[in-house]
Nucleic acid binder design. Sequence first.
DNA 1: CCAAAAGTGTTTGCAGTACACCCATGT
DNA 2: ACATGGGTGTACTGCAAACACTTTTGG
Lengths: 249, 249
Amino acid sequence: MQQQIIFSTDKPSIKVKSFSSIQNEIQSGNPIALSVDCVIFGFDENKLKVLLIRSDLKKYQDKWTLLGDLIAPNEDLDDAAYRILKQRTGLNNVYLEQVHTFGKVKRHPAGRVITVAYYSLINIKHHKLNILDNELHWHDIENISELAFDHQEIFNTCYERLQKRVQEHPLGFNLLPKKFSLRDLQNLYEAILGFKMDRRNFRKKFFSMDFLIDLDEIEQNVPHRPGKLYQFNYAKYEKKKKKWAGIDF
Amino acid sequence: MQQQIIFSTDKPSIKVKSFSSIQNEIQSGNPIALSVDCVIFGFDENKLKVLLIRSDLKKYQDKWTLLGDLIAPNEDLDDAAYRILKQRTGLNNVYLEQVHTFGKVKRHPAGRVITVAYYSLINIKHHKLNILDNELHWHDIENISELAFDHQEIFNTCYERLQKRVQEHPLGFNLLPKKFSLRDLQNLYEAILGFKMDRRNFRKKFFSMDFLIDLDEIEQNVPHRPGKLYQFNYAKYEKKKKKWAGIDF
DNA sequence: CCAAAAGTGTTTGCAGTACACCCATGT
DNA sequence: ACATGGGTGTACTGCAAACACTTTTGG
Protein backbone atom coordinates (compact mmCIF):
# COMPACT_ATOMS: atom_id res chain seq x y z
CA MET A 1 0.00 0.00 0.00
CA GLN A 2 2.45 2.54 1.20
CA GLN A 3 4.93 1.22 -1.27
CA GLN A 4 2.61 1.89 -4.17
CA ILE A 5 2.54 5.54 -3.30
CA ILE A 6 6.26 5.76 -2.95
CA PHE A 7 7.13 3.73 -6.00
CA SER A 8 4.48 5.51 -8.01
CA THR A 9 4.46 4.46 -11.63
CA ASP A 10 3.80 8.03 -12.74
CA LYS A 11 6.95 9.41 -14.24
CA PRO A 12 8.30 11.60 -11.48
CA SER A 13 10.04 14.82 -12.34
CA ILE A 14 13.78 15.02 -12.20
CA LYS A 15 15.32 18.37 -11.55
CA VAL A 16 18.78 18.39 -12.98
CA LYS A 17 21.39 21.04 -12.74
CA SER A 18 24.10 21.46 -15.27
CA PHE A 19 27.63 20.80 -14.21
CA SER A 20 28.65 24.41 -14.69
CA SER A 21 25.80 25.81 -12.63
CA ILE A 22 26.92 23.69 -9.71
CA GLN A 23 30.46 24.78 -10.29
CA ASN A 24 29.35 28.39 -10.25
CA GLU A 25 27.50 27.88 -7.04
CA ILE A 26 30.53 26.28 -5.50
CA GLN A 27 33.06 28.80 -6.61
CA SER A 28 31.27 32.09 -6.64
CA GLY A 29 29.35 33.27 -3.73
CA ASN A 30 30.12 31.00 -0.85
CA PRO A 31 32.09 32.86 1.79
CA ILE A 32 32.24 29.97 4.21
CA ALA A 33 35.70 29.05 5.38
CA LEU A 34 36.71 25.68 6.74
CA SER A 35 39.14 25.01 9.51
CA VAL A 36 40.41 22.11 11.55
CA ASP A 37 40.91 22.21 15.30
CA CYS A 38 42.99 19.57 17.05
CA VAL A 39 42.49 18.47 20.63
CA ILE A 40 45.73 16.74 21.55
CA PHE A 41 45.63 14.77 24.77
CA GLY A 42 48.75 13.75 26.62
CA PHE A 43 49.53 12.11 29.91
CA ASP A 44 52.25 12.91 32.38
CA GLU A 45 52.67 12.88 36.15
CA ASN A 46 49.47 10.88 36.36
CA LYS A 47 47.46 13.68 34.89
CA LEU A 48 45.67 13.97 31.62
CA LYS A 49 46.71 17.07 29.71
CA VAL A 50 45.76 18.92 26.58
CA LEU A 51 47.82 21.08 24.23
CA LEU A 52 46.71 24.71 23.95
CA ILE A 53 48.10 27.89 22.47
CA ARG A 54 47.31 31.55 22.79
CA SER A 55 44.83 32.79 20.25
CA ASP A 56 46.21 34.00 16.94
CA LEU A 57 43.91 36.97 17.14
CA LYS A 58 45.22 40.01 18.98
CA LYS A 59 41.84 40.70 20.53
CA TYR A 60 41.82 37.25 22.10
CA GLN A 61 45.45 36.94 23.12
CA ASP A 62 44.53 36.37 26.75
CA LYS A 63 42.44 33.35 25.83
CA TRP A 64 43.67 29.85 25.14
CA THR A 65 42.63 28.04 21.99
CA LEU A 66 42.92 24.67 20.36
CA LEU A 67 45.42 24.08 17.58
CA GLY A 68 43.69 25.11 14.41
CA ASP A 69 44.04 26.58 10.98
CA LEU A 70 42.15 26.94 7.73
CA ILE A 71 42.07 24.06 5.29
CA ALA A 72 43.95 24.58 2.05
CA PRO A 73 41.93 24.25 -1.15
CA ASN A 74 43.98 21.37 -2.46
CA GLU A 75 44.45 19.16 0.56
CA ASP A 76 42.34 16.35 1.90
CA LEU A 77 40.55 17.12 5.12
CA ASP A 78 42.48 14.51 7.08
CA ASP A 79 45.75 15.74 5.62
CA ALA A 80 44.91 19.23 6.77
CA ALA A 81 44.58 17.98 10.32
CA TYR A 82 48.02 16.36 10.20
CA ARG A 83 49.56 19.42 8.58
CA ILE A 84 48.11 21.74 11.17
CA LEU A 85 49.35 19.58 14.00
CA LYS A 86 52.77 19.44 12.42
CA GLN A 87 52.89 23.19 11.83
CA ARG A 88 51.78 24.09 15.29
CA THR A 89 53.81 21.59 17.27
CA GLY A 90 56.30 19.81 15.06
CA LEU A 91 54.55 16.57 15.94
CA ASN A 92 54.55 13.83 13.37
CA ASN A 93 53.42 10.24 13.18
CA VAL A 94 50.47 10.78 15.45
CA TYR A 95 47.10 9.25 14.88
CA LEU A 96 44.27 11.76 14.59
CA GLU A 97 40.61 10.89 14.72
CA GLN A 98 37.79 13.08 13.51
CA VAL A 99 35.14 13.79 16.11
CA HIS A 100 32.59 16.37 15.06
CA THR A 101 32.04 19.43 12.91
CA PHE A 102 30.94 22.70 14.47
CA GLY A 103 29.08 25.07 12.23
CA LYS A 104 27.09 27.72 14.04
CA VAL A 105 27.00 30.93 12.03
CA LYS A 106 28.42 33.06 14.80
CA ARG A 107 30.85 30.61 16.34
CA HIS A 108 33.95 32.56 15.23
CA PRO A 109 34.35 36.33 15.52
CA ALA A 110 36.42 36.68 12.35
CA GLY A 111 33.75 35.45 10.00
CA ARG A 112 31.87 32.38 8.92
CA VAL A 113 34.15 29.48 9.74
CA ILE A 114 33.01 25.93 10.07
CA THR A 115 35.51 23.79 11.92
CA VAL A 116 36.14 20.07 11.99
CA ALA A 117 37.44 18.80 15.33
CA TYR A 118 40.03 16.05 15.60
CA TYR A 119 41.58 14.52 18.66
CA SER A 120 44.63 12.48 19.44
CA LEU A 121 46.45 10.94 22.36
CA ILE A 122 50.19 11.10 22.57
CA ASN A 123 52.91 10.11 24.92
CA ILE A 124 54.32 13.37 26.21
CA LYS A 125 57.72 11.88 26.87
CA HIS A 126 57.99 10.32 23.41
CA HIS A 127 56.95 13.41 21.51
CA LYS A 128 59.03 16.49 22.16
CA LEU A 129 57.28 19.63 21.06
CA ASN A 130 59.53 21.27 18.49
CA ILE A 131 57.65 24.51 18.22
CA LEU A 132 56.64 26.65 21.13
CA ASP A 133 55.00 29.58 19.37
CA ASN A 134 52.03 31.15 21.02
CA GLU A 135 53.01 29.66 24.37
CA LEU A 136 52.13 26.19 23.20
CA HIS A 137 52.11 23.91 26.16
CA TRP A 138 50.34 21.19 28.09
CA HIS A 139 47.48 22.13 30.40
CA ASP A 140 45.97 19.93 33.05
CA ILE A 141 42.51 18.84 31.99
CA GLU A 142 41.05 19.92 35.30
CA ASN A 143 42.25 23.48 35.09
CA ILE A 144 41.30 24.47 31.63
CA SER A 145 38.88 27.32 31.35
CA GLU A 146 38.44 30.54 29.46
CA LEU A 147 38.95 28.97 26.07
CA ALA A 148 38.27 31.32 23.19
CA PHE A 149 35.24 31.15 20.89
CA ASP A 150 33.43 27.83 21.18
CA HIS A 151 36.62 25.93 21.94
CA GLN A 152 35.39 24.89 25.36
CA GLU A 153 32.47 23.11 23.71
CA ILE A 154 34.77 21.51 21.15
CA PHE A 155 37.08 20.38 23.89
CA ASN A 156 34.22 18.92 25.91
CA THR A 157 32.92 16.99 22.93
CA CYS A 158 36.36 15.56 22.23
CA TYR A 159 36.93 14.67 25.85
CA GLU A 160 33.66 12.78 26.03
CA ARG A 161 34.56 10.97 22.84
CA LEU A 162 37.93 10.07 24.28
CA GLN A 163 36.34 8.67 27.42
CA LYS A 164 34.04 6.52 25.38
CA ARG A 165 36.66 5.35 22.92
CA VAL A 166 39.20 4.45 25.55
CA GLN A 167 36.72 2.00 27.02
CA GLU A 168 36.23 0.29 23.70
CA HIS A 169 39.68 0.41 22.16
CA PRO A 170 43.20 0.05 23.46
CA LEU A 171 44.07 3.68 22.85
CA GLY A 172 45.54 4.27 26.23
CA PHE A 173 48.76 2.38 25.57
CA ASN A 174 49.88 5.19 23.29
CA LEU A 175 50.18 7.39 26.33
CA LEU A 176 52.40 5.06 28.31
CA PRO A 177 56.06 4.21 28.02
CA LYS A 178 56.73 1.05 26.05
CA LYS A 179 57.28 -0.76 29.31
CA PHE A 180 54.73 0.03 31.97
CA SER A 181 53.48 -1.34 35.23
CA LEU A 182 49.89 -2.17 35.96
CA ARG A 183 49.84 0.76 38.32
CA ASP A 184 50.81 3.03 35.42
CA LEU A 185 48.02 1.59 33.36
CA GLN A 186 45.47 1.99 36.08
CA ASN A 187 46.54 5.56 36.81
CA LEU A 188 46.03 6.31 33.15
CA TYR A 189 42.52 4.91 33.03
CA GLU A 190 41.60 6.66 36.24
CA ALA A 191 42.91 9.96 34.92
CA ILE A 192 41.00 9.68 31.67
CA LEU A 193 37.77 8.36 33.08
CA GLY A 194 37.83 10.44 36.21
CA PHE A 195 37.17 7.82 38.85
CA LYS A 196 39.04 5.28 40.95
CA MET A 197 38.90 1.56 40.36
CA ASP A 198 39.56 -1.50 42.47
CA ARG A 199 43.15 -2.60 41.93
CA ARG A 200 42.50 -6.34 42.07
CA ASN A 201 39.60 -6.22 39.66
CA PHE A 202 41.51 -3.99 37.31
CA ARG A 203 44.37 -6.49 37.17
CA LYS A 204 42.05 -9.42 36.78
CA LYS A 205 40.36 -7.66 33.91
CA PHE A 206 43.51 -6.93 31.98
CA PHE A 207 45.10 -10.29 32.63
CA SER A 208 41.99 -12.07 31.47
CA MET A 209 42.04 -10.08 28.24
CA ASP A 210 45.45 -11.57 27.68
CA PHE A 211 46.92 -8.72 25.67
CA LEU A 212 49.75 -7.89 28.04
CA ILE A 213 53.23 -9.29 27.53
CA ASP A 214 55.04 -9.99 30.77
CA LEU A 215 58.56 -8.66 30.23
CA ASP A 216 60.02 -10.31 33.34
CA GLU A 217 61.44 -6.97 34.33
CA ILE A 218 60.66 -4.79 37.30
CA GLU A 219 60.49 -1.08 37.98
CA GLN A 220 63.70 0.61 39.08
CA ASN A 221 64.26 3.29 41.69
CA VAL A 222 60.89 3.15 43.35
CA PRO A 223 60.73 3.59 47.12
CA HIS A 224 58.67 0.46 47.61
CA ARG A 225 58.27 -2.98 46.21
CA PRO A 226 58.80 -2.66 42.46
CA GLY A 227 56.07 -3.74 40.08
CA LYS A 228 56.48 -5.93 37.04
CA LEU A 229 56.66 -4.35 33.61
CA TYR A 230 54.50 -5.17 30.62
CA GLN A 231 54.06 -4.36 26.96
CA PHE A 232 50.83 -4.26 25.01
CA ASN A 233 50.51 -7.03 22.45
CA TYR A 234 49.12 -5.13 19.48
CA ALA A 235 49.53 -8.09 17.13
CA LYS A 236 47.40 -10.33 19.31
CA TYR A 237 44.82 -7.62 19.77
CA GLU A 238 44.48 -7.08 16.03
CA LYS A 239 43.74 -10.75 15.55
CA LYS A 240 41.24 -11.09 18.33
CA LYS A 241 39.29 -7.87 18.38
CA LYS A 242 35.54 -8.10 18.24
CA LYS A 243 32.75 -6.34 20.06
CA TRP A 244 32.99 -5.10 23.60
CA ALA A 245 31.30 -3.20 26.33
CA GLY A 246 33.01 -1.25 29.02
CA ILE A 247 36.72 -1.87 29.09
CA ASP A 248 36.35 -4.98 27.11
CA PHE A 249 38.53 -5.33 24.05
CA MET B 1 62.22 17.34 33.87
CA GLN B 2 60.10 17.15 30.78
CA GLN B 3 57.85 19.75 32.25
CA GLN B 4 60.71 22.21 32.56
CA ILE B 5 61.28 22.05 28.85
CA ILE B 6 57.68 22.50 28.01
CA PHE B 7 56.98 25.25 30.48
CA SER B 8 60.23 26.98 29.59
CA THR B 9 60.68 30.26 31.37
CA ASP B 10 62.05 31.85 28.22
CA LYS B 11 59.47 34.18 26.84
CA PRO B 12 58.05 32.22 23.94
CA SER B 13 57.12 34.02 20.76
CA ILE B 14 53.53 34.70 19.98
CA LYS B 15 52.56 34.98 16.36
CA VAL B 16 49.49 37.10 16.12
CA LYS B 17 47.41 37.85 13.12
CA SER B 18 45.27 40.90 12.83
CA PHE B 19 41.55 40.47 12.64
CA SER B 20 41.38 41.78 9.12
CA SER B 21 44.09 39.50 7.79
CA ILE B 22 42.15 36.52 9.03
CA GLN B 23 39.01 37.93 7.52
CA ASN B 24 40.78 38.33 4.21
CA GLU B 25 41.96 34.78 4.33
CA ILE B 26 38.46 33.61 5.05
CA GLN B 27 36.67 35.61 2.44
CA SER B 28 39.03 35.80 -0.46
CA GLY B 29 40.74 32.81 -1.84
CA ASN B 30 39.05 29.80 -0.40
CA PRO B 31 37.12 27.99 -3.07
CA ILE B 32 35.97 25.17 -0.84
CA ALA B 33 32.27 24.56 -0.77
CA LEU B 34 30.38 22.88 2.02
CA SER B 35 27.45 20.59 1.70
CA VAL B 36 25.28 18.37 3.87
CA ASP B 37 24.20 14.88 2.92
CA CYS B 38 21.36 13.16 4.75
CA VAL B 39 21.02 9.41 5.15
CA ILE B 40 17.38 8.88 6.09
CA PHE B 41 16.54 5.40 7.33
CA GLY B 42 13.03 4.08 7.41
CA PHE B 43 11.39 0.77 8.18
CA ASP B 44 8.54 -0.94 6.43
CA GLU B 45 7.47 -4.50 5.66
CA ASN B 46 10.12 -5.69 8.08
CA LYS B 47 12.89 -4.20 6.02
CA LEU B 48 15.22 -1.34 6.71
CA LYS B 49 15.16 1.25 3.93
CA VAL B 50 16.97 4.40 2.94
CA LEU B 51 15.83 7.44 1.00
CA LEU B 52 17.68 8.10 -2.26
CA ILE B 53 17.24 10.36 -5.25
CA ARG B 54 18.67 10.52 -8.71
CA SER B 55 21.74 12.70 -8.96
CA ASP B 56 21.19 16.37 -9.68
CA LEU B 57 23.98 16.22 -12.19
CA LYS B 58 23.01 15.24 -15.71
CA LYS B 59 26.15 13.21 -16.15
CA TYR B 60 25.24 11.08 -13.14
CA GLN B 61 21.49 10.76 -13.68
CA ASP B 62 21.69 6.99 -13.71
CA LYS B 63 23.25 6.91 -10.25
CA TRP B 64 21.48 7.22 -6.93
CA THR B 65 22.61 9.75 -4.37
CA LEU B 66 21.92 10.80 -0.84
CA LEU B 67 19.85 13.88 -0.10
CA GLY B 68 22.25 16.77 -0.17
CA ASP B 69 22.78 20.42 -0.94
CA LEU B 70 25.22 23.23 -0.31
CA ILE B 71 25.11 25.08 2.98
CA ALA B 72 23.95 28.68 2.84
CA PRO B 73 26.36 31.30 4.14
CA ASN B 74 24.02 32.49 6.84
CA GLU B 75 22.61 29.30 8.28
CA ASP B 76 23.87 27.10 11.06
CA LEU B 77 25.21 23.75 9.97
CA ASP B 78 22.49 21.81 11.76
CA ASP B 79 19.82 24.10 10.32
CA ALA B 80 21.16 23.42 6.86
CA ALA B 81 20.63 19.71 7.39
CA TYR B 82 17.00 20.25 8.39
CA ARG B 83 16.41 22.64 5.52
CA ILE B 84 17.83 20.23 2.98
CA LEU B 85 15.75 17.38 4.27
CA LYS B 86 12.66 19.56 4.15
CA GLN B 87 13.40 20.79 0.64
CA ARG B 88 14.08 17.38 -0.76
CA THR B 89 11.30 15.44 0.91
CA GLY B 90 8.90 17.79 2.65
CA LEU B 91 9.77 16.03 5.89
CA ASN B 92 9.65 18.06 9.05
CA ASN B 93 10.02 17.42 12.76
CA VAL B 94 12.60 14.74 12.27
CA TYR B 95 15.64 14.34 14.44
CA LEU B 96 18.94 14.46 12.55
CA GLU B 97 22.27 13.46 14.00
CA GLN B 98 25.64 14.45 12.60
CA VAL B 99 27.90 11.51 11.83
CA HIS B 100 31.07 12.44 9.99
CA THR B 101 32.58 14.92 7.57
CA PHE B 102 34.05 13.76 4.28
CA GLY B 103 36.71 15.94 2.76
CA LYS B 104 38.88 14.25 0.16
CA VAL B 105 39.92 16.72 -2.51
CA LYS B 106 38.51 14.72 -5.36
CA ARG B 107 35.44 13.28 -3.73
CA HIS B 108 33.01 15.30 -5.88
CA PRO B 109 33.33 15.78 -9.64
CA ALA B 110 31.92 19.30 -9.68
CA GLY B 111 34.65 20.84 -7.56
CA ARG B 112 36.02 20.94 -4.06
CA VAL B 113 33.11 20.12 -1.82
CA ILE B 114 33.43 18.96 1.73
CA THR B 115 30.29 17.33 3.00
CA VAL B 116 28.90 16.76 6.45
CA ALA B 117 26.84 13.59 6.78
CA TYR B 118 23.73 13.36 8.95
CA TYR B 119 21.41 10.46 9.52
CA SER B 120 17.93 9.99 10.80
CA LEU B 121 15.38 7.29 11.38
CA ILE B 122 11.77 7.84 10.54
CA ASN B 123 8.54 5.94 10.55
CA ILE B 124 7.63 5.52 6.91
CA LYS B 125 3.93 5.30 7.61
CA HIS B 126 3.91 8.43 9.76
CA HIS B 127 5.87 10.57 7.36
CA LYS B 128 4.40 10.86 3.91
CA LEU B 129 6.89 12.15 1.41
CA ASN B 130 5.49 15.37 -0.01
CA ILE B 131 8.01 15.77 -2.76
CA LEU B 132 8.95 13.14 -5.27
CA ASP B 133 11.40 15.04 -7.44
CA ASN B 134 14.33 13.12 -8.78
CA GLU B 135 12.54 9.83 -8.18
CA LEU B 136 12.87 10.18 -4.46
CA HIS B 137 11.96 6.92 -2.84
CA TRP B 138 12.78 4.23 -0.33
CA HIS B 139 15.34 1.59 -1.23
CA ASP B 140 15.92 -1.65 0.60
CA ILE B 141 19.19 -1.50 2.46
CA GLU B 142 20.28 -4.80 1.02
CA ASN B 143 19.90 -3.77 -2.58
CA ILE B 144 21.59 -0.43 -2.69
CA SER B 145 24.54 -0.16 -4.98
CA GLU B 146 25.92 2.13 -7.61
CA LEU B 147 25.67 5.23 -5.49
CA ALA B 148 27.28 8.29 -7.04
CA PHE B 149 30.54 9.86 -5.90
CA ASP B 150 31.59 8.65 -2.46
CA HIS B 151 28.00 8.24 -1.32
CA GLN B 152 28.42 4.52 -0.80
CA GLU B 153 31.13 5.23 1.76
CA ILE B 154 29.01 7.88 3.45
CA PHE B 155 26.10 5.50 3.57
CA ASN B 156 28.23 2.73 5.04
CA THR B 157 29.57 5.01 7.74
CA CYS B 158 26.08 6.14 8.68
CA TYR B 159 24.75 2.61 8.70
CA GLU B 160 27.48 1.46 11.05
CA ARG B 161 26.78 4.42 13.29
CA LEU B 162 23.10 3.55 13.28
CA GLN B 163 23.82 -0.03 14.27
CA LYS B 164 25.93 1.11 17.16
CA ARG B 165 23.56 3.81 18.34
CA VAL B 166 20.50 1.64 18.24
CA GLN B 167 22.13 -0.69 20.72
CA GLU B 168 22.80 2.11 23.15
CA HIS B 169 19.76 4.31 22.75
CA PRO B 170 16.05 3.71 22.22
CA LEU B 171 16.06 5.09 18.70
CA GLY B 172 14.19 2.22 17.20
CA PHE B 173 10.83 3.18 18.58
CA ASN B 174 10.71 6.08 16.13
CA LEU B 175 10.38 3.57 13.35
CA LEU B 176 7.43 1.71 14.80
CA PRO B 177 3.77 2.60 15.03
CA LYS B 178 2.80 4.11 18.37
CA LYS B 179 1.36 0.78 19.36
CA PHE B 180 3.54 -2.17 18.52
CA SER B 181 3.91 -5.81 19.39
CA LEU B 182 7.07 -7.36 20.67
CA ARG B 183 7.33 -9.18 17.39
CA ASP B 184 7.37 -5.82 15.60
CA LEU B 185 10.10 -4.63 17.89
CA GLN B 186 12.21 -7.72 17.41
CA ASN B 187 11.78 -7.60 13.63
CA LEU B 188 13.02 -4.05 13.73
CA TYR B 189 16.15 -4.87 15.70
CA GLU B 190 16.87 -7.86 13.54
CA ALA B 191 16.51 -5.77 10.39
CA ILE B 192 18.82 -3.06 11.65
CA LEU B 193 21.43 -5.30 13.19
CA GLY B 194 21.29 -7.96 10.54
CA PHE B 195 20.94 -11.08 12.65
CA LYS B 196 18.27 -13.15 14.36
CA MET B 197 17.73 -13.23 18.11
CA ASP B 198 16.15 -15.61 20.53
CA ARG B 199 12.55 -14.57 21.09
CA ARG B 200 12.41 -15.45 24.77
CA ASN B 201 15.62 -13.69 25.62
CA PHE B 202 14.58 -10.66 23.60
CA ARG B 203 11.34 -10.35 25.54
CA LYS B 204 13.02 -10.93 28.85
CA LYS B 205 15.49 -8.20 28.03
CA PHE B 206 12.90 -5.59 27.17
CA PHE B 207 10.55 -6.45 29.99
CA SER B 208 13.36 -6.24 32.50
CA MET B 209 14.28 -2.78 31.23
CA ASP B 210 10.76 -1.83 32.17
CA PHE B 211 10.28 0.89 29.59
CA LEU B 212 7.32 -0.69 27.82
CA ILE B 213 3.76 0.28 28.67
CA ASP B 214 1.35 -2.61 28.36
CA LEU B 215 -1.70 -1.17 26.59
CA ASP B 216 -3.95 -4.16 27.28
CA GLU B 217 -4.76 -4.25 23.61
CA ILE B 218 -4.04 -6.90 21.03
CA GLU B 219 -3.25 -6.98 17.36
CA GLN B 220 -6.20 -7.11 14.96
CA ASN B 221 -6.62 -9.06 11.76
CA VAL B 222 -3.67 -11.34 12.10
CA PRO B 223 -4.07 -14.94 10.91
CA HIS B 224 -2.73 -16.36 14.15
CA ARG B 225 -2.80 -15.71 17.85
CA PRO B 226 -2.62 -11.90 18.23
CA GLY B 227 0.15 -10.33 20.27
CA LYS B 228 -0.23 -7.69 22.94
CA LEU B 229 0.49 -4.09 22.06
CA TYR B 230 2.89 -1.78 23.85
CA GLN B 231 4.10 1.80 23.90
CA PHE B 232 7.56 3.05 24.75
CA ASN B 233 7.72 4.98 27.99
CA TYR B 234 9.94 7.90 27.01
CA ALA B 235 9.34 9.74 30.27
CA LYS B 236 10.55 6.82 32.36
CA TYR B 237 13.54 6.32 30.09
CA GLU B 238 14.59 9.94 30.42
CA LYS B 239 14.63 9.66 34.17
CA LYS B 240 16.50 6.40 34.37
CA LYS B 241 19.02 6.52 31.59
CA LYS B 242 22.64 5.90 32.49
CA LYS B 243 25.39 3.91 30.88
CA TRP B 244 24.90 0.73 28.97
CA ALA B 245 26.49 -1.89 26.85
CA GLY B 246 24.84 -3.83 24.12
CA ILE B 247 21.10 -3.28 24.08
CA ASP B 248 21.12 -1.98 27.57
CA PHE B 249 19.42 1.33 28.18
C1' DC C 1 -7.98 -29.98 13.50
C1' DC C 2 -4.28 -27.52 11.44
C1' DA C 3 -1.07 -23.75 10.82
C1' DA C 4 1.15 -19.99 12.78
C1' DA C 5 2.94 -17.26 15.98
C1' DA C 6 2.35 -15.83 21.10
C1' DG C 7 3.66 -16.63 25.49
C1' DT C 8 6.38 -18.64 29.20
C1' DG C 9 11.02 -20.71 32.89
C1' DT C 10 15.04 -22.96 33.98
C1' DT C 11 19.74 -23.90 33.82
C1' DT C 12 24.42 -22.79 33.02
C1' DG C 13 28.38 -20.14 32.70
C1' DC C 14 30.73 -15.88 32.71
C1' DA C 15 31.78 -11.34 34.22
C1' DG C 16 31.57 -7.60 37.34
C1' DT C 17 31.98 -6.22 42.12
C1' DA C 18 33.16 -6.10 46.80
C1' DC C 19 36.40 -7.09 49.91
C1' DA C 20 41.44 -8.18 53.29
C1' DC C 21 45.72 -9.99 53.90
C1' DC C 22 50.62 -10.95 53.09
C1' DC C 23 54.97 -9.61 50.40
C1' DA C 24 59.03 -7.06 48.67
C1' DT C 25 61.61 -3.06 48.67
C1' DG C 26 63.85 1.36 50.30
C1' DT C 27 64.69 4.25 54.07
C1' DA D 1 61.12 -1.49 62.15
C1' DC D 2 58.25 0.92 59.29
C1' DA D 3 56.05 2.92 55.29
C1' DT D 4 54.61 2.21 50.72
C1' DG D 5 52.57 0.14 47.28
C1' DG D 6 52.73 -4.82 44.81
C1' DG D 7 50.54 -9.01 44.46
C1' DT D 8 46.87 -12.40 45.27
C1' DG D 9 41.66 -15.25 45.91
C1' DT D 10 36.98 -15.92 47.07
C1' DA D 11 32.15 -15.34 47.38
C1' DC D 12 28.10 -13.04 45.56
C1' DT D 13 25.23 -11.34 42.12
C1' DG D 14 23.24 -10.34 37.77
C1' DC D 15 23.18 -10.87 32.87
C1' DA D 16 23.53 -13.51 28.61
C1' DA D 17 22.69 -17.67 26.23
C1' DA D 18 20.78 -22.01 25.23
C1' DC D 19 16.83 -24.40 24.98
C1' DA D 20 10.95 -26.76 24.24
C1' DC D 21 6.45 -26.92 25.23
C1' DT D 22 1.71 -25.08 25.74
C1' DT D 23 -1.77 -21.55 24.29
C1' DT D 24 -4.54 -18.80 21.34
C1' DT D 25 -6.33 -17.39 17.26
C1' DG D 26 -7.97 -17.73 12.15
C1' DG D 27 -8.94 -20.57 8.49
